[in-house]
């Protein structure tokens, strides 16, 4: 085995993809050795001049980082770190680490330093996550299944279940639901008493309730009706509702 350290390679921490894992890697960055990059396992390409170290997720270490961010840099910054983690951007954890390095130096004032490259970079990663949340709160479509369960499929670019599940838990109070993130094979589930996110590796959706198709047809009829013919503007329509969302939107996919 060749010793990468001897070759002078940059250190890269690999974490398991979880929020706690990412915070553990940041803990190691402070208490062990500062890395050049922090990456989630499975989404990196080996480079010759880098050496890789796996970080074992440790809840006491991640908890300490979590509390330190909140106490020393503030809630807003903690929110930015969390939204950043939800992003699909491969370098998200590196950007978060760079943001926090500056944050621990200057404290809560960091969120005002909009023109600073480290702060700007994290804002840039946050923005599409929040935009997608905004879109998906409106575009998600539930179907009523046998037994009165509400079921929705989605394929989002960023990881939206941790935001969408509590939102719909509040909105749907009395009805159990499943939001199925098809791409990530995960599901946000509510039994009306609590919500959680579970694996959907072996999940099969229940059958549709008999009246489901009727309501889809009614919705499609309404959606067609509201368009004013002399104002047709398909370009504007797909700008506001980008086509990648159409797959699961009842009125756009013909009620499939």
């Amino acid at each position: 085995m060749c010793d990468r350290r001897a070759l002078g390679g940059h250190l890269v921490y690999l974490y398991d993809g979880s929020f706690e894992g990412m915070l553990t890697a940041i803990f190691e960055a402070y208490y062990r050795e500062a890395p050049g990059r922090i990456l989630a396992e499975g989404c990196w390409q080996q480079a010759l001049d880098e050496r890789y170290e796996k970080v074992e997720t440790d809840l006491s270490k991640s908890g300490r980082v979590h509390d330190a961010i909140e106490a020393k840099i503030g809630k807003t910054a903690l929110g930015m770190v969390y939204y950043g983690w939800l992003s699909h951007e491969p370098e998200r954890a590196t950007r978060i680490y760079e943001f926090l390095r500056l944050g621990f130096r200057i404290g809560p004032g960091i969120t005002a330093r909009l023109a600073d490259p480290a702060v700007d970079a994290l804002f840039r990663i946050n923005r599409p996550v929040l935009r997608e949340y905004d879109k998906q709160r409106g575009f998600l479509r539930f179907s009523v299944m046998e037994g009165g369960i509400y079921y929705a499929k989605e394929e989002t670019v960023s990881y939206q279940l941790p935001l969408l599940t509590p939102y719909f838990f509040d909105r749907m109070t009395g009805d159990p639901f499943i939001i199925h993130d098809v791409g990530r094979r995960l599901a946000g589930v509510s039994d009306t008493r609590q919500w959680r996110i579970v694996s959907a590796e072996t999940f099969t959706a229940p059958d549709m309730s008999p009246e489901e198709m009727d309501y889809r047809r009614l919705w499609i009829a309404f959606h067609e009706t509201v368009a004013i013919q002399s104002r047709l503007n398909p370009k504007l329509q797909s700008q506001m509702a980008p086509k990648r969302y159409w797959k699961y939107m009842t009125e756009m996919n013909g009620g499939k």
């Binding site: 905004d134 709160r137 409106g138 575009f139 838990f169 509040d170 909105r171 749907m172 109070t173 009395g174 009805d175 959606h223 067609e224 509201v226 368009a227 004013i228 104002r231 047709l232 503007n233 398909p234 370009k235 504007l236 329509q237 700008q239 506001m240 509702a241 939107m249 009125e251 756009m252």
Partner: peptide
């Protein structure tokens, strides 16, 4: 306003667009 036990629904102050019709207008 947040959800209420025994009822259905909440409200979000910025409003939510649920679809866009063929004329590009928001359907909320």
């Amino acid at each position: 306003r947040g959800g209420v036990k025994g009822m259905t629904g909440n409200a979000v102050s910025c409003g939510i667009c649920h679809s866009f019709s063929a004329d590009g207008r928001c359907v909320s």
